[in-house]
Design a protein around this nucleic acid. Structure first.
Length: 159
DNA sequence: GCCAACGTTGGC
DNA sequence: GCCAACGTTGGC
């Protein structure tokens, strides 16, 4: 199967791209997703070798800041069973896990961050999930065309 | 901090 | 199954 592309949102105060770059083996497990649509993508769709835009949300400015790679496919999010974890879910049964995660590894930071405003102003991204009104998904598909547009935008000066 | 949009819960 | 209430997300 051809490599696919995704966008993962994270609040940088919780886990930033710099945190990923500094993590052991520059790798982390993407835990804490508690939304079924995003869960389905993590469990079923993200494959080894797929590329990921790392997006910072709830900050100024919100922006795509880096690229990562899926290095381990969906497996149970064990933080759901930890009563001390912020995302503890007592309804998740270890024999039939509700929540899944993947592992991602840092590939590189973008040469410059691409803010939401700049993405909105970029031709070819009109249908991007991130830019749709009311879109809140924290794990989103990105088309190959969108991926290429964004990488081309990165190479342009400005922003 | 505000609030629109969305997802989940639970009473009926 | 409907839908109001509630909680969360996330841009601003």
């Amino acid at each position: 199967m051809a490599r696919r592309y995704w966008l993962l949102k994270s609040e940088p105060t919780a886990f930033s791209f710099a945190d990923l770059a500094q993590a052991p083996d520059q790798t982390t497990h993407w835990d804490g997703v508690r939304n079924f649509q995003a869960r389905n993508l993590l469990r079923d769709e993200l494959k080894r070798g797929d590329r990921v835009f790392f997006y910072h949300s709830n900050c100024t400015p919100t922006a795509i800041v880096g690229i990562a790679e899926v290095v381990r496919e969906g497996y149970p999010d064990f933080t759901a069973w930890d009563p001390d974890d912020k995302h503890y879910d007592p309804k998740s049964d270890p024999d039939n896990p509700t929540w899944y995660m993947v592992d991602i590894r840092c590939v590189r930071p973008l040469r410059r961050r691409l803010s939401l405003d700049e993405l909105r102003a970029t031709p070819g991204l009109e249908e991007m999930v991130l830019l749709r009104k009311g879109s809140r998904l924290s794990v989103q598909p990105v088309t190959a065309a969108e991926w290429q547009r964004i990488l081309a935008r990165e190479k342009q000066p400005g922003g």
